[in-house]
Amino acid sequence: MVQAPTTGTPGRRRAVEEPATSTEARRRAIRARRLRHGWVGLGLVVPAAAAYAMFVLRPLALTVQYSFYDWNGVTSSTWVGLGNYARLAENPEMLGSIVNALELIVYFSFVPVALGLLTAATIRKLAASRLALVSRTVLFLPQVIPLVAAGIMWTWLLASDGLVNQVLRAVGLGSVTRAWLGDTSTALPAVGVIGAWVALGLCMLLFLSGMTKIDPSLYEAARIDGAGPVREFFAVTLPSVRQEIGVAVTVTVISALAAFDIVYISTQGGPANSTLVPGLEIYYLGFFSRDVGQASALAVVFMLLVLAIVLPIQRLTREGD
């Protein structure tokens, strides 16, 4: 297909204009020009490609390599084949961390996407009023705050004498107060709340920009057909921002699966491993157990899992084009 006469490259066109002494000479000239162009292109790509290969592909390949060894990171290593992967399958702690990550998707992705849609639709109705500007800014603010700061702030809010419990006591719900991050049953949802709070701003902004592109006449038509605000939302707004939803879901799902900072700051995986996520487990394996091979094996498996989840999402939103 590449060889087809309709390629339309500049080299090809000029070659046609030249007097054709022989087809052989012409073909050679074309090849020479293509090569020259190719070298220039290659020269432009090389610096970026080298950096990418050095700092992304090489570590990736090394991680795969390390996963076949028993290695403490310093002294000599032993080849163990698939041993690290086998141990992964039978270790409830490492598997549990993967389950926790999947559960975090609900809080880090579904909740902010749903709330983001709702707030964006509401703010759109407020149009250019000052209230819209203020609420947009306030909701986007968490996105600007470093995750570490957000984590610290929320550990104070969620502490046993923190603001959350103070409010609960003030409204007469003193019986449900607890150290939210210190209770094995509430710690993961509490961490999820922090993540949802952070991601909401990004989702809302994405949807808001998507909604500004919607042709107002669509809403007019819907209204003439007798659609209420709810019907309007599902029939017009939602289908129009499908692509933005795809982007938002992809970004937030990855952030849920790759969660580290918020969990590390707020619970460090505790209490009793109830908030242990793969990112944290890899870190513990690599730096505390000094078991680089096992950490790499978990990282490889987890990377494949992320791809297996994110690629279908990509396909779903692309097919709608």
């Binding site: 490609a49 990418y52 290969a53 050095m54 592909l57 090489r58 990736l60 390949a61 090394l62 795969v64 390599q65 390390y66 060894y69 290695w71 403490n72 990171g73 310093v74 002294t75 000599s76 290593s77 032993t78 080849w79 680089v292």
Partner: peptide, 21 residues
């Protein structure tokens, strides 16, 4: 191409990781 490049780079460090201290 990137897989090829990656394996090439990995090959340069293909011996078992780590050194004898």
């Amino acid at each position: 191409a990137s897989l090829g490049l990656a394996s090439l780079l990995a090959a340069t460090a293909c011996s078992a990781p780590g050194t004898s201290t």
